[in-house]
Every structure is written in structure tokens, then in C-alpha cells.
């Protein structure tokens, strides 16, 4: 049978690094040591004002093809996952097809998902390949949440970093699945817990969009900035994600013992510690890369997988459980061999 599998991943982060020291110099009242203790994040990479998520995606794609040049002409589908497009229209994936010089006989779509976006894109790629509609699907995830973030809002500025990842999903003949059936989930009742309220058609930008307000924790933001209800997102994660994790294992007739490594969406240390404790996942099975990159939204999982692939000392495949969750609210998880 034709099976989809992850053939290669590369990633790109912009050169400008935002350290915890930089955060204090901008905001002397922030207790950055305490923030580091909780979030575990030391650095984030931030795109320059004139660099967009599409630019980062193109950089990630170019980097990918310098390392895997033979694959370029084989790409017959491009999935671009972002919530920071260049335009309302056209589709960003079309712009990226041209910029990367990809074949014109390929399918190209944008997927608007955040922290669950890589796994959602992976399930689409698997569907396309295993029904023989495509043979080599390029998934590019890219975000520049920094452009939505008010510099005086520690509830989000401390967490999010910009970045892009480029993953090639290819095909092979095998009796065994390389990417399991993906478990998806949605709870739109939490849509306003992680949101940029103004700027699109529900609330077009007007004179109220840049009016700053201060929250109880002295954070400043306006309605055109990113807002996160951290309490609600944390509660959702704590209650829902352990259940989903076990559902993924059960639907694959597996237990935690069968999993070599768990790559959660790298939200931050506090959230990962909570899930780890609830599920009693041994530390050696937990992937952690938030410290260097922060929360890069849809790119945390492919970056995590790439870092783990680079650590491997031999070519034997490992079994990973991947699970993305967040804005939407939305979640998706699967088991992959890599």
C-alpha cells in the first residue's frame, strides 16, 4: 500500500534574537527571572518589521532545497499553514510557489490554523498521498505573531517567537502506516480566548483599534493586538489534552511504553510540565525546545522533530507521538515513525 511519511524537515528563524535581558531593558518592571522559571523560555527570534511570514516561509523553503535539491521538481502539492498571511487574497501558497520556483502543475492551499496547524496539514498531506492525488507534499508552517503583539504585554511577548519550518511528506510502499490516523478536535466556544479582535471584517480597523487598555496584571494592549486569556487556555490544556493524548494511544492500540518520544506543541514549560505530570510521562520521553525558540505556533512540532532527528545516532526509526493544541480552540495529534 502507498504510505505517506515524513522524508525531511528543515527550519528557519529570523536572525534577530530577543533575550530575557532585552525584555527587561524594554520593561524594567517585569520580573524576568520569575517569567523564565515558569515559561522556561530564554530566547525568541523576531522578524524585522518588513519581513513577513511569507518571507520566512520562502527562506525556510530555499534552505530546504539547498539541502534536498533533488526533491524540488517532485513537489506536486504545497500546503502553507499560517495565521499571518501577506494579503486577504491571493492565497499565500501561490506566492510561495512562484518564489520557490516550484512546478506549476501542483496544488497549493493555505491552512489557517495555529498550534495544531502542523498536525492538521500532515493529515491533509497523508490523505492526498494515500489516495494517490499527490506524491510529494511540501508543508510550510510559518508565523510572525510578534507583529500582533504589544511590546508592553508580558502575557504574550514573553512566550511567542517567529519562525518557519518546511517539511516534505513523501510516499513509500509499505504494509505499515508511517503516519497514523490523525485525531482532530475543535471547541470554537473558546475562540475569543486567543484572538486578534480587530483588523479583519468582523471588526475592521477604525479609530478604536489602537486605543490602549491596561489589564489587571498591568499589561497594555489594544484591540488590534493579540489577546490571550492565559487562564482559560491553561485550564483547557490541563483538562483536555491528557484525555486526547490517551485517545491517540488507544486508537492505535498502544500505551506510553510503545512511544519513544512525545513531541507536544512547545507552548511553554509550565504547560508541558502540567501535562507531563498528569500523564506521568518520563522526562527522557519529553521533547523540549521552547527555551531557545519560544512558542513558534505551528512550527514548534516540526522544529522539535528536526532537532530530534539530528540527535539520532543511527537510521533506525523511532515512534513519536505528536500533539498540537491551542488557538481555535483546536487540537490534533498522531503517531508517526521517523
Amino acid at each position: 500500500m502507498i504510505r505517506a511519511y515524513i522524508k525531511a524537515i528543515e527550519y528557519f528563524v529570523p536572525p534577530k534574537k530577543l533575550t530575557n535581558k532585552d525584555l527587561i531593558s524594554d520593561n524594567p518592571s517585569w520580573d524576568v527571572e520569575k517569567i523564565y522559571d515558569k515559561t522556561g523560555i530564554a530566547n525568541r527570534y523576531i522578524a524585522d518589521d518588513n519581513v513577513t511570514a511569507v518571507d520566512l516561509a520562502i527562506s525556510a523553503g530555499k534552505h530546504f532545497f539547498t539541502k534536498h535539491s533533488n526533491d524540488k521538481n517532485k513537489i506536486d502539492y504545497l500546503i502553507f499553514c499560517t495565521q499571518s498571511p501577506d494579503y486577504f487574497l491571493p492565497t499565500s501558497a501561490c506566492i510561495i510557489q512562484n518564489a520557490l520556483g516550484l512546478n506549476s502543475n501542483l496544488g497549493a492551499i493555505d491552512v489557517n490554523q495555529g498550534c495544531s496547524g502542523f498536525v492538521y496539514s500532515l493529515s491533509l498531506a497523508k490523505g492526498l498521498i494515500e489516495t494517490s492525488q499527490a506524491t510529494n507534499v511540501l508543508i510550510i508552517t510559518s508565523e510572525t505573531y510578534s507583529k500582533y503583539i504589544n511590546k508592553k504585554d508580558k502575557s504574550v511577548r514573553t512566550l511567542f517567537g517567529d519562525g518557519a519550518a518546511c517539511s516534505l511528506i513523501s510516499n513509500l510502499e509499505s504494509r505499515n502506516e508511517q503516519i497514523s490516523k490523525v485525531t482532530h478536535g475543535t471547541d470554537g466556544s473558546g475562540a475569543d480566548h486567543l484572538i486578534v479582535p480587530h483588523g479583519a471584517h468582523r471588526h475592521p480597523l477604525d479609530e478604536s483599534s489602537n486605543v490602549l487598555y491596561e489589564d489587571k496584571s498591568s499589561n497594555l494592549r489594544s484591540p488590534s493586538d493579540l489577546y490571550m486569556n492565559g487562564n482559560a487556555i491553561y485550564t483547557f490544556t490541563m483538562k483536555k489534552i491528557p484525555i486526547i493524548f490517551n485517545e491517540i494511544l488507544e486508537s492505535n492500540n498502544m500505551t506510553l511504553n510503545d512511544i519513544d518520544l512525545v513531541v507536544f506543541h512547545q507552548a511553554n514549560k509550565f504547560i508541558l510540565d502540567t501535562i507531563q505530570k498528569k500523564l506521568q510521562i518520563p522526562e527522557e520521553k519529553m521533547h523540549r525546545s521552547y527555551e531557545e525558540y519560544g512558542n513558534t505556533v505551528s512550527s514548534t512540532i516540526p522544529i522539535g522533530l528536526k532537532l530530534e532527528m539530528d540527535k539520532k545516532k543511527n537510521s533506525a526509526k523511532k515512534i513519536y507521538l505528536i500533539l498540537g493544541f491551542g488557538v481555535g480552540l483546536s487540537w490534533a495529534g498522531a503517531i508517526i515513525k521517523l
Binding site: 515558569k38 489587571k216 486569556n229 492565559g230 487562564n231 482559560a232 485550564t235 502540567t274 505530570k277
Partner: peptide, 24 residues
């Protein structure tokens, strides 16, 4: 008492009392 404190309290109440309270 700030947003980080609230998050810590949710987590510790869950540990100590096995109750998952809503952060809000």
C-alpha cells in the same frame, strides 16, 4: 496576585485537592 500566580494556584490546587478549577 497576577496572572502567573493564578496559573500556579490552578496547578497546585489540582495537585493538592485533585480539583480542576477554571482559571477565570
Amino acid at each position: 496576585w497576577d496572572s502567573l500566580a493564578v496559573l500556579s494556584v490552578i496547578s497546585m490546587i489540582d495537585d493538592e485537592y485533585s480539583i480542576e478549577l477554571d482559571g477565570d
